[in-house]
Design a protein around this nucleic acid. Sequence first.
DNA 1: ACTCTTATTGACCAACGAGTTAGTTAACAA
DNA 2: TTGTTAACTAACTCGTTGGTCAATAAGAGT
Lengths: 209, 209
Amino acid sequence: MTNQSEITIRRRRPKARPTEILAAALDLFTERGFNATRLEDVATRAGLSKAAIYLYFNDKASLLTALVQATVGANITIAGDMIGRHQGPVAPLVRELLSFMAGRMQETRMPDLIKLVISESRAHPEIGRFYLDNVIGRALPLFQSLIERGMASGEFRKVDPRLTVKCLVGPMLLGAIWKSAFEPIGAEPLDLAALAVHDADLIIRALQP
Amino acid sequence: MTNQSEITIRRRRPKARPTEILAAALDLFTERGFNATRLEDVATRAGLSKAAIYLYFNDKASLLTALVQATVGANITIAGDMIGRHQGPVAPLVRELLSFMAGRMQETRMPDLIKLVISESRAHPEIGRFYLDNVIGRALPLFQSLIERGMASGEFRKVDPRLTVKCLVGPMLLGAIWKSAFEPIGAEPLDLAALAVHDADLIIRALQP
DNA sequence: ACTCTTATTGACCAACGAGTTAGTTAACAA
DNA sequence: TTGTTAACTAACTCGTTGGTCAATAAGAGT
């Protein structure tokens, strides 16, 4: 408020702008939600004017699209590598992957982004479609291949891999929504790491022949 | 469009209004989302004027609150009865309860309502809080007591009941979001009944001593 | 110093939609 | 028939905000 060093000095830094804008947008979208966030506020937080945002993005929705693109892709690629590289029994890898997910959920703003995508997928189908194709459509088959590998080697009993994958991932989705939607309004904190361990434990046991 | 019988005849039917308004609101909220729905449209679909809505509801948000209250409370009570009445081994009851949930998800608009609550809990904390207290805060302990009963009788092995409940419910939440957020934009349909059966199956197996 | 390019902005607008109000009409009782 | 009340609406207010544009200034090159 009384911060005198906040006097805006016009600067031309076209390279740095987009990421600054996205960072500000992520902050505000997760704090107040997509609709309640005024582009004006994104601008001030990013240290430029609202009009300048339109030099770098087409409209409000494309901010969200860019955010999803920048954030989620990387994690899936890492997970894919983990799975591709791995040899031997798959049970430890299942544990490792779930713990990896839990870690990302605690450290990054993935839960908020997931909530945003779910919330806005009606009003902005492009965003939902992108998420469906690039996150869900990649993550689920990845896990599914893992289960199938375990079944082929006799490590796991025969089950429907598609349903099993959803049972494996469901609790983590619950965790994400818990963190992003319910903790902010007073729900007791949920230990995602512990949930991941327990989840992996239950599913692996359930898959013993 | 050319429906001549649509000439609006003013009627005074105060008893019927609220439910008609809520029905219209539910339709539109789930179709277009909460923010994108104009109160004007709710009014026309309900067959009255926007101003009349304010005779029955305080504001837009209270429409959503009323919707949640009317829809979710009943189911939980039913589930509570099922659990209270039940005797003997709990495994069959777990299956029955999950299948009951799946049924409600397929037949009613619960998935859409859940998505709405999640989406709007930031902008309208009262709604989120209500859901937290009356749905989550009732449903989870209910399931938890069931698990604990099974553990006490020796039917289940000892596990953390809180985490286990979340692993049990998570897949159903995934199902709800799948139906409400992703199926409308082209995701392959998900058989919730089959998911419920599989989910119950996995968890019960995982809980064998 | 002086251009020239382009990043940046202040000021604007059009549209929109939640909520209000003053007036109108249905229903019913006396 | 008429008066009264409660249900209802047309038409308005008013704050809000996404998006635009002409004007401005920062920096690079000369």
